[in-house]
Amino acid sequence: MNFRKQFFEGLLTKNPVTVQLLGMCSTLAITTSLFNGLGMGISVTIILICSNVLISALRRVIPSQIRIAAYIVIIAGFVTIVDLLLQAFLPELSQSLGVFIPLIVVNCIILGRAEAFASKNGVLASAVDGLCQGIGYTVALVVMSVLRELLGSGTFGGGLLGGGQGYTVIPDPYPAMKIVMPVGGFLTLGVVIAFSQWLVARIEKKNKKKEAAKV
């Protein structure tokens, strides 16, 4: 198994958010503090691993005509389990993510990976795929959250560090409040994707040079 390649793909070259442009609803909506971004990222990663494993294990049992329906039911099951667990054990997170927890069901990343990977590969490989894609998703969310929180509320680590308030970096009248509002979501994601496109282009250029040197 080339774990390194899968990891690198999930993180950058095939990152679910910045390259595949999947699951953008939650990416835009909840990335207003580190707590939210990290919480959402971890929830999705757990669901992604579980659904990938189960779907991969059942891939010979489920007839292809009803596979999408079966996947959706399985995914909805895991999402509800995570939803209930969050409500019971992390009520603050559940409150601030609100309806976006059950909406993970229609997050295209999970159905996308089920269809593109788990339905064709073994259990272990699917688990690793879920983990790598999940990490890629989480990293993208955390980057978005940190940027938006810093520029919009002027704090770092809100809901998590510094007694739940986060550490103030930019004092009160200066943060651009619009960045934590919907507008900021679009703008920040645009800039983050632009940066990742630039990074990917640079790496590809380097690889080409290396290959050219080899020849």
Binding site: L58, I62, P63, Q65, V73, I74, I81, L84, Q87
Partner: peptide, 27 residues
């Protein structure tokens, strides 16, 4: 086809009922 789908749904429902049993009192 229907039976397979039904079985999967039943399994999911059973799993959810189990989890709900644990979380409902806490919620």
């Amino acid at each position: 086809l229907s039976l397979t789908l039904f079985l999967i749904t039943a399994l999911v429902a059973a799993a959810l009922a189990g989890v709900n049993g644990i979380t409902a009192p806490r919620i």
